[in-house]
Design a protein around this nucleic acid. Structure first.
Lengths: 220, 220
DNA sequence: CCGACTTTGTGAATAAGTGAACGAACTCGG
DNA sequence: CCGAGTTCGTTCACTTATTCACAAAGTCGG
């Protein structure tokens, strides 16, 4: 058992979701050649409360110095380590429509350690085409691609109708995480992490608050 | 004052964020010509707990029938109304790089009532180009575009460095909601709604859990 | 009309997340 | 070395969100 580990270290989900934001803020700070940063300033850059920053960081240990703040480089190192960004993560993108192509062309992934290791589609017309030095392969190759290229993150950029089947094939091939851009909820086993990005959902949430505001204005 | 309104009707944020997911599930259900749906089934489709579905829906009134479930069309109507989807929402996209272009070409917006009413960039080389019948305009035109075309939602698809300035200009021009794709946190007045979509952040969150899993496997 | 069954709506318990507040630990000028 | 000032780490009260559990309200076959 792992009963008497050094510390419990169960990190709250909300904290995990903020780490990448802190990371970005710290990178900007490092770029300005500042050696230390206060929780106050980091909070401002990340758009959150200072106490929250301190609490979030404290889950990983005491990396700050009272009266001084946090050493930027030291903190960068630890957050990168916690996020598993000390090595590259090969990804495969399934679905080479508008979105899939845009993702494949977008340089921001590689920069941040997410190496696009494969592009996949079902359409025979697309298979064989090249995007950024990568050749689009048929989805039947998925198992081989995952194993050979040590891919652990799968990106679904297909239409909604195809998403579940793609997810199933990814799971069968041994993926461990999925980023789902298809506008539908996919079901996967408990031990697979899934995150969803859905632009229409975000717009509809904005629409809700917009609508509320308008009717309040009208009533008030 | 609005002290004695019919009901409090302060909808929890978490509930609002789920409404679009229910909406999508209900649309699929309607497409299968099913007249009613149980909270159980809707929960399954939306990937949540059935009690949560019922509580979420109950904030808007009692739209279900015990022993039967929810009338699909009736519920669709009410959710659409709550989300403000009874009319179109003109949007403007600022930043015509890879992502901005992909968004402009993507048909999913229009389908869902988010009409792309303007495309904007700073680059003189891009201004004047056409994408899907829309001509890219210069960002200085933003105030005119917003007013003339009744735009209330602004989409930021610029690099991080430009995002805050674009947000400021949108706010100055009277935008009420912003969807931010730039990988940075933007500051806006309290009465402006902002949502953020950041692919790299999502990947880093997946990376965190992947890393955890690996080290647990190694240790266990 | 009745009794078995289904499914909602909601009160109450639990869990998760937030933020104010403050003691502890550090720096720095003199 | 000391006292003033800064900033972290953490406790505690509070808010928000989730889930359970069950009475109430409906259906349906006979």
């Amino acid at each position: 058992m792992t009963a008497d580990s050094p510390a419990p270290r169960q990190i709250p989900e909300a904290t995990v979701a903020r780490l990448p934001v802190y990371l970005r803020a710290l990178q900007d700070t490092a770029a300005e050649h500042k050696a230390t940063i206060s929780s106050e300033r980091l909070a401002e850059m990340a758009g959150v409360n200072a106490a929250k920053v301190r609490k979030d960081l404290s889950y990983f240990g005491s990396y700050g110095t009272r009266g001084v703040g946090y050493d930027v480089e030291y903190l960068l190192f630890h957050i990168r380590r916690e996020l598993g960004l000390t090595h590259d993560w090969p990804c495969v993108i399934v679905g080479m429509g508008n979105l899939g192509q845009a993702l494949a062309k977008y340089g921001g992934f590689q920069e941040r350690g997410f190496l696009i290791a494969g592009l996949v589609d079902t359409d025979p017309a697309k298979v064989g085409q090249k995007i950024n030095n990568l050749t689009i392969e048929h989805i039947d190759e998925l198992p081989r691609i995952l194993v050979d290229r040590k891919v652990s993150i799968g990106v679904i950029a297909t239409p909604a109708a195809a998403a579940q089947e793609v997810a199933d094939r990814m799971v069968a091939a041994g993926i461990s995480s999925i980023l789902n851009f298809a506008p539908t909820v996919i079901a996967v086993p408990d031990d697979i992490s899934v995150r969803k990005v859905d632009v229409a959902v975000e717009l509809q949430i904005l629409s809700f608050y917009n609508e509320r505001r308008s009717s309040l204005d009208a009533a008030g």
